[in-house]
Simulated scan of single mutants.
Amino acid sequence: MLAKVELPGEAFGGMILKAVGLKRVFGRGAAAVTALSDVHLEIPAGSMVALKGRSGSGKTTLLNMLSALDEPTEGQVFFRDKEITRMPGKERSALRRKEIGLVFQSFGLIPLMNAYENVEFGLRVAGTSFKGNREAAEHALEQVGMKERMKHRPAELSGGEQQRVAIARAIAHKPVLLIADEPTAELDSRMGIQVMRVFRELVHRSGMTVVLTTHDPGIMELVDHVISLEDGRIVSQTNIE
C-alpha cells in the first residue's frame, strides 16, 4: 500500500510524482550494493519536500529515479500519471529539458560563459522562445541575488555564487518540477534562506513542485514535508506545520 504524502497542493492537479516499489542495485553478484529498496511515495503538485538521511542513505539515488536520470532495477516512477522509468532516452531527455529543473551538487556551469550566458544557454536547451530569453535569464538571476554579478564567469565567482547561478539556470524556464540535490550546501545561512524563499514563491505563484535533499535543520523547517531515508528505505515521513 502506498504511503501518501499529505501535503498542500491538491488544487494544482493532484499527484505530480509517484514511486512504486523502487529498488536500485549497483553491481552484480557478491559486489552488488542495494542503494534503494521498496520505496513507495506520492508527492502532490505545488509542494516542497525535503529528503534527509546520512551519506549513503539513498537520497541522491532516489532523486535520480524521480528525475528520469536513472532507471530503477525494479519498480516504477510516474510523472503526471505517465510512467517515465521505461521511456526511451530521447523522451526522458526532452522531459527534463522542458518540464524539470535540476540542481546538482556539482554546479555544471560552462567555464567560458558568464553567469548570464550560462542561464540563457539553459533556456535555449530547454527550447524556449529566444525573444524572451534575456528577460527570463535576468529575472532568474535577480531572484537568487546574482543579477549584479551576471557578467562574471564561474572562475570569478565563489562556490556559493556559482550555486546560485546553477539554481537560476534550473528555474529560468519555469519547470513544473524542481529536483535539487543539496541546493543550499554551498551557501551561508542567510543566502540559503533567501534561496528557499525563492523556491517557496515559485511554489506559491506557479504551483511548481520542489523536491530537494538537505542536511540543514533550518531548511527542513521551511518545507511542507520531510521524508527520512536510512539504508535505502523510507523510515519516516513528517508534515511540517
Results as ranks from 00 to 15, higher is better:
F79Q: 03
G159C: 02
E42N: 13
A136H: 03
L229C: 08
A180Y: 05
K151F: 08
A185Y: 05
L17C: 09
A3W: 05
I100T: 06
M65Y: 04
D188S: 03
G127W: 12
I193K: 15
R205W: 01
P217A: 05
V77D: 03
R233A: 13
E156Y: 00
F107W: 02
G9I: 07
T213K: 03
Q105K: 05
L212H: 11
K4Y: 09
G127E: 11
V125F: 01
A50L: 06
A180C: 07
V103G: 03
T73P: 00
D181K: 10
E91Y: 00
V33E: 05
V211P: 03
G122N: 09
P217V: 10
E138W: 02
Y116P: 05
K174C: 04
L102N: 09
V119I: 04
L36A: 03
I193E: 12
V235G: 15
K147Q: 11
R205M: 04
S106T: 09
G58L: 09
R24A: 12
L62F: 10
H204Q: 15
D231N: 10
R200D: 00
R28E: 12
E120W: 11
M48H: 02
N133Y: 11
R80S: 12
P154M: 04
T184A: 14
H152N: 11
V203P: 01
G232Y: 04
Q163S: 13
E71H: 10
L62E: 03
G29E: 09
I16P: 06
H215E: 03
K147A: 13
L202A: 07
P88K: 08
E10K: 09
G192D: 10
M48E: 07
V195Y: 08
L229V: 10
E142R: 14
L7T: 15
L102K: 09
I110K: 08
